[in-house]
Amino acid sequence: MKQGFSWRVLVFITPALLIYAVFSALPLLDTLRLGLYSTDDTGARTFSGLANYATILNDPQWSASFWNAMLNNLKFFGIHMLAQNPMGLLLAALLSLRNVRFAAFYRTVFFLPTLLSVVIVGFVWQLILSPLWGVSERLLGWVGLADWFAPWLGLESSALITLSLMSVWQYVGIPMMLIYAAMIAIPEDVIEAAVVEGASPWRIFWQIRLPLILPTLGLVTILTFVANFNAFDLIYTVKGGLAGPNYSTDILGTLFYRTFFGYQSQVASPTMGAAVATLMFLVILLGVGAYFLVVQRRLQRFAM
């Protein structure tokens, strides 16, 4: 019986394992392998060990581009953590309250942008923010803030922040729905007991709801981290492969694209691109590992 059961399980999981191996595991291993080679002017590849990584981290030109992209990626992630996730928490807390009219409609409206193509989102926001034909300056003028308008996507100081907020607008529905699902899963008996004891809604949120959804908040954080350090499409759609102005919106994804495929005056180098992709993988791996070793352990102790 046990042997037959194990064979049936193997039959069901084999297709998923094959798909994962072909489209995820093998490309990852090949990327790690390719990063250990270098390419000469003729296109021939020779094994060079860690030379590509030494070039990226030590060569003045390469290291400046890499660390600029890394810093911008950290800013991109930080803005999502400071804007997207607290906003998702607030929306989830409001929509999970009792007797909220049209709650399902509001959930749909906030989640709908996540279903849109990033190309469409980037194009629409470019039209809105354009200083030539956009409507943002006129909208600010209606509320007396016309002097605040600026070509935010064209300034080095504001381009990355603007793109980050565009991403926040599109994806705030994901943390909202995850946190909302955790909040409605809280037993009603716990909330009713607190109400009977005279606890205010604010106190119920801070002392009951928030501690019970901490594991979900941790999950939202790590998902945001992985998604932000894999980001590419929005930056490329709005600012192109150069991630201007003056590389102020350059992140690891766009740096990898320019390195691997080449862009304008930059010559393509698959081996250097594979090294950049491997460094991206290591950054994400270290972040996820730190989360499980530090944050997840504390959450488990708190739950116990």
Rank of each mutant, 00 (worst) to 15 (best):
Q3G: 01
F5C: 00
S6V: 08
S6M: 04
R8H: 01
L10N: 07
T14A: 12
T14C: 10
A16I: 08
V22S: 05
V22D: 10
P27C: 11
L29N: 05
D30Y: 08
G35P: 10
Y37S: 11
T42D: 02
T46M: 04
L50R: 04
N52P: 04
Y53W: 04
I56G: 05
I56F: 03
L57V: 08
D59C: 05
P60L: 02
Q61H: 03
W67Q: 05
N68I: 02
A69S: 15
M70G: 05
F76M: 13
F76W: 15
H80A: 14
M81F: 12
A83R: 00
N85G: 11
N85L: 12
M87K: 03
L90T: 06
L91G: 04
A92T: 02
A93H: 08
A93S: 13
S96C: 04
L97N: 06
R98T: 14
P113I: 01
L115F: 15
L116D: 03
S117M: 07
W125A: 02
D147R: 02
L153E: 03
S157M: 11
L160F: 11
I161C: 03
S164Q: 04
M166K: 09
V168M: 13
Q170A: 14
V172P: 13
G173Q: 03
I174H: 01
P175M: 06
P175Q: 07
L178G: 09
I184Y: 04
E188A: 14
V190D: 15
I191N: 04
E192A: 01
V195W: 05
E197T: 06
R203Y: 08
W206T: 13
Q207L: 08
I208Y: 06
P211I: 03
L212A: 09
I213H: 08
I213R: 10
G218D: 07
V220S: 13
T224Y: 00
T224W: 00
F225W: 13
V226P: 10
A227V: 00
F229M: 15
N230F: 00
D233A: 14
G241I: 10
G241N: 07
L242P: 03
L242Y: 06
N246R: 12
I251D: 07
I251P: 05
L252P: 15
L252C: 05
G253N: 06
T254W: 11
T254A: 09
L255T: 02
Y257D: 13
Y257S: 15
R258Y: 01
T259H: 09
F261N: 09
F261H: 09
Q264S: 14
V267P: 07
S269H: 00
P270W: 00
T271K: 02
G273F: 10
A275T: 14
L279A: 06
L282F: 15
V283P: 02
V283F: 05
L285T: 13
G289M: 12
Y291H: 14
R298W: 01
